[in-house]
Design a protein around this nucleic acid. Structure first.
Lengths: 219, 219
DNA sequence: CTCAATTTGTTCTCGCGTTCACAAACTCCT
DNA sequence: AGGAGTTTGTGAACGCGAGAACAAATTGAG
């Protein structure tokens, strides 16, 4: 299943490591902005908020990009991580659902600066079609196929109410979208081969509430 | 460290389980809305998008709330989970940073319906003070102490740009806030005893991009 | 050139979480 | 009442990730 014919990047990077690579990349960018050209695993780990042993192990999955006795070249490592994640290229993204959250996402500058380009905002509400939000056209949900095909979109973002999420996901999958970021508070089912990541705002708060309650209960 | 003097809820629930309890709660609410009064672990697991064995083990940490041969009483289980998480009570929350994301969070109905009440929106921008967003007063960041004390706030949400996040966190901790939900794309450092959860929108997309790239590379 | 100091890459061990598999408990039908 | 059929709760095995610890590689001083 994980056999790769491509000669490079054939390593199988653990999921936990993949989730931390963007954090390292951000830390490296911050260091570069400060004019720092070289850093040790200890320093980088501090910036990223992780253990240095973990950092080194994570980086070792990518290859040997450090120099013993010296550390890592910030620019070089930055490029290597970006390439591994795939953010050296430009990823077109569609956002469905132009409520408060869709608005916020469309305006979020962090997407663009990290290689993601919002090519369209889709909504079922016809009265909003033709509007321009954050420099992006608001279009009809029915235009999804056309937009996906024209721009070669592989990543879709769901920012609709819970009730619409599964329908939207089905349509996205039907168009050939293979990665979905779901902000709707509902579980969506997709075929094998499609990746879904879920961000649920109220769940995060509930987890905090659980711990908060326990703190209070230690009498 | 985990010794509890309180007689009930003395069990130590694994972190991974805690993170899933809100999902189960949501699934149970959906079932209840459909008029379903009883469900098996298999059915509930399907709604929640998990394995039924995992679901049963998770629930077993709370106690034996099911009936063998029958399943779980939806209302009863719902109450037990809600009580365990702590969402039977009302949690006052402050949001700092009234940008696009702060706006979206303030308007998010999912908070209120789950026991979280936004008591104030704070922002450094003086021109916005006195405004009312989503029925909540926009106040000066300097009012943090007063608001936290008045309402007994234990949970704070950071929705500022990255540069301000650490300062805001420090102030929050200084006021006695012990749980922080951080949407700013930066690592924040807090003292022992303070819980931080981080939601980073662009990191989620980068993780998707990594997998997307790998799919494309399987030639 | 040699040796001390530094820092990476990797091996090893431990603990947590997931999953399987099954005994225990309950219902319902005859 | 008894037995077949369900479904929970949990013991045990397994796999992954975290962290400690160390060997290998590099630098720089004398």
């Amino acid at each position: 299943m994980t056999a790769r014919s491509s000669s490079e990047s054939a390593r199988d990077i653990p999921e936990a490591t993949v989730a931390r690579l963007p954090v390292y990349l951000r830390a490296l960018n911050a260091l570069a902005d400060d004019g720092i050209r070289t850093c040790s695993s200890e320093e980088l780990a501090l910036s990223a908020g992780v253990n240095s042993a973990k950092l080194r192990k994570d980086l070792s999955y990518l290859g040997s990009y450090g120099t013993r006795g010296v550390g890592y070249d910030v620019d070089y490592l930055r490029y290597q991580i970006a390439r591994e994640i795939g953010v050296t290229q430009d990823w077109p993204v569609v956002i469905v659902g132009i409520g408060n959250l869709g608005h916020a996402l469309a305006n979020y500058s962090g997407f663009r600066s990290r290689g993601f380009r919002v090519v369209a905002l889709l909504d079922a509400d016809e009265t909003r079609h033709g509007e321009v939000v954050a420099g992006v056209d608001v279009r009809a949900f029915g235009d999804l196929e056309e937009i996906v095909e024209t721009h070669g979109v592989a990543i879709g973002v769901i920012a609709t109410p819970a009730g619409a999420a599964q329908d939207v996901a089905d349509r996205m999958v039907g168009c050939g979208i293979t990665s979905i970021l779901n902000f709707a508070p509902s579980v969506i089912v997709v075929p094998e081969g499609v990746d879904v990541r879920k961000v649920d705002l109220s769940i995060e708060l509930q987890i905090l509430a659980y711990h908060e309650q326990r703190k209070a209960n230690v009498t």
